[in-house]
Design a binder for these strands. Structure first.
Lengths: 184, 184
DNA sequence: CTGAGCATGTAATCGGTTACATGATTCC
DNA sequence: GGAATCATGTAACCGATTACATGCTCAG
């Protein structure tokens, strides 16, 4: 009798509150919206949609197009809105441990790996800088009143990107000092 | 012929570099070592161990005990050390998007959910504070020379916990202001 | 004429978690 | 007497990713 949905199912339901969309559109939409903290594979989206319909949380309409392939357009139903509401206001289960492969490697590192690990930290730093740049671009254009709630998630991205950059800089310094110490 | 292992397999291999251990001991060890960024289920550890043996990366010895159940003690082999080394120094694949259920909920939030979401942010703040406290305790006792590489991962935990706390405080203020605005 | 975009899906595989199952010993 | 610790594993299930498969249209 249908216990809860998965977070990704709720995410799709949530995206549908912005208007009816095809699977294809939803896939693209994720990149410009929740993509910084939730990015399901498109095959997952296509798999979810009919299941939402089966549960009465969404409704599909076949739209014929010439020049373009026909498409299924999905809209959220009242029941879907209720389900989303319920999930939104229910306590979030304590977040599991955030896995991080780089930390795993660093943990097992030894002086001999210094150079190779350094490179990987540099890569992490660059990735964080690129992400920060993208988010700052969004920060410049976002409407903080109209898009108040998305703005809160943007702040998270900004804060954690900066923290990551700060950490990588600290680590690079320590790694260099360690390297010098080892050579002495 | 046996491409790479999973990160968790490497993690187990890495833990074995600290000395031979039983599955039971490895499970406990994760909590005091890599547990802040990598915590496999114990059933996973038990599943991995024989596979490592099968690949010649670890070797098992049966140890009989009275008073305690007999146990299998696993030790890393030369081949295991080589495999670990190779993984450690190979470029880390670009980290995927870090999923965060709370951000997902916030993104889809509307003023009506303000109070319920606020509670969830408070919970996140408390969790981050607890974690920060634990890490600061480790910071006080860790040997920054002997445990140089693990120390680098500790710094990551400190940095990101503080960033999370800062973010939650910012969000709580904004949420309160928003709530007042809405009531006015 | 080629590549990008539109559009939908299936199949194989993976990595992982939760719950279940068992049983002795030791500490309180 | 009961809970925690030692010790190992299986089975069921889940959520997700990658690769594969197809085929039309439009812009350069």
């Amino acid at each position: 009798m249908g216990g809860g949905l998965s977070d990704t199912e709720y995410a799709v339901l949530g995206l549908l509150t912005f208007g009816a969309r095809s699977g294809y559109d939803l896939d693209k939409l994720t990149r410009r919206s929740i993509g910084y903290f939730w990015r399901p594979a498109k095959s997952k989206i296509y798999a979810i949609l009919p299941r939402l319909v089966g549960r009465g949380l969404a409704r599909a309409t076949q739209v014929a197009q010439d020049k373009r392939p026909d498409k299924q357009v999905y809209a959220i139903t009242r029941a879907g809105e209720r389900a989303l509401e319920e999930w939104l206001t229910s306590p979030e289960p304590a977040a599991g441990v955030a896995r991080d492969g780089l930390l795993l490697k660093l943990f097992f590192g030894r002086p001999a790996h210094g150079a190779a690990l350094r490179e990987q930290v540099v890569a992490r730093k660059r990735a964080a800088e690129r992400k920060l740049g993208e988010l700052e671009e969004i920060e410049r254009t976002i409407d903080r009143v109209e898009d108040f709630f998305p703005y809160l998630t943007l702040l998270h991205g900004l804060e954690t990107s900066r923290a990551t950059i700060a950490w990588t800089e600290r680590v690079l310094k320590l790694l260099d000092r360690e390297g010098a110490r080892a050579r002495a």
